[in-house]
Nucleic acid binder design. Structure first.
Lengths: 197, 197
DNA sequence: TTCTTTATGGATCGATTAGTATGTAAGTAA
DNA sequence: TTACTTACATACTAATCGATCCATAAAGAA
């Protein structure tokens, strides 16, 4: 059954993409409604009819990020490939994506709401939860590798996970600082080669 | 010669400390003047007479951070100690400081202005420049180690620097996420042991 | 047509933003 | 004392914040 009412004139999916770029570049707090509306080319009424609130739009943006740029770490949950391969792939794809100049650099889940005003702590929690899922995938990937004998059991999975995760998150700041993809990719080669992962 | 005029009733140094905590916790953009004034216990007039502007206060806060909590990486510039020792010390001190619950977690230079509204890009540049100095110290420390034969020359100093720096910056996000000092410290043990640094 | 539903343009809301203006208090210097 | 300097308390500014209201437009359903 077709929906009734006046049809929306703007492309909602495109609007979410525009919003994602702004939130990614400037963070949640620092991105204003005026900027969002201008990027989308819509009025306040249309904005609130379509998205409900600035925070709700951010949630939709997180979903969009997870199903697009954020997929670079999805391989960590792929049990059909070897753990070491998955980890290296996740790191290299992360470095490639985060330094790509066709969009804001770094990871949106790391940069967009890590710090915020106290009244928006629940927004910070949104990206915190997303990072938790990535960490969980990484740790389970490492555990699988240890069970397969692929990765040494001498080091606890939790510790290896912390090591890789710290390196991965740090790439976001480096990408913002203009560190080249080449340098980061070579660092990945080094960390993979020597850390037995 | 003693200064003339009515003496200031509040402690400026203490006020800067209070401001540092707020900027560190919430970031530059998300910290309001109302919050700063309340934490300092002063009026608008006193604030602007003492600090000039919100941005100028941030500069003073950066200086304060560099000469207090930020000193954890100063050992990288200490040419009297071995490079490997300096790097390990910098990492361990960083992890300890950033996970200490007596102040906001993570590194203020990484968290407080990595993302911001476009009109405040010059504020972002302030912390970017501070990070650049840390990177410079790290890279020169690595180069010294390679010249001493302490660190392998098989890997370019720039690449090793990127590896360590990424790991170090990533600790900020992990500290915010509640990853324990113990886990991070063990990861440092691992990265030091296996990466030949 | 008439009714219902949804989207739109545009004005507007109260609250908050960073920053100022003004008059006065409190010190030193002459 | 008088002059000067600095800091204070208070009130205030223009601009911006996220969000809402209302009349109207544009669609399907009856």
């Amino acid at each position: 059954m077709a929906r009734t009412g006046r049809p929306r004139v703007f492309d909602k999916e495109l609007a979410i993409s525009k919003a994602m770029v702004l939130y990614w570049e400037q963070g949640f707090d620092s991105t204003s409604l005026a900027q969002l509306k201008e990027a989308m080319g819509i009025s306040s009424a249309s904005f609130y009819a379509a998205f409900g609130s600035k925070e709700n739009l951010f949630k939709e943006v997180i979903d969009r990020y997870n199903t697009s740029y954020g997929k670079v770490t999805d391989c960590l949950a792929d049990t059909s490939i070897k753990s070491k391969v998955a980890i290296e792939k996740a790191l290299r794809q992360t470095a490639k994506m985060q330094t790509d100049s066709s969009h804001p650099t770094g990871c949106m889940l790391v940069l967009s709401a890590n710090v915020c005003s106290e009244k928006n702590n629940h927004v910070r929690d949104l990206v915190f939860k997303e990072r938790s899922l990535v960490r969980l995938n990484l740790e389970e990937c490492i555990i699988r590798g240890q069970e397969n004998g692929e990765i040494t059991r001498e080091v606890k999975a939790d510790v290896l996970c912390t090591l890789i995760e710290a390196f991965m998150y740090g790439i976001s700041t480096q990408a913002r600082d203009g560190i080249s993809y080449k340098s980061i990719d070579q660092a990945i080669t080094q960390i993979i080669k020597t850390c037995d992962i």
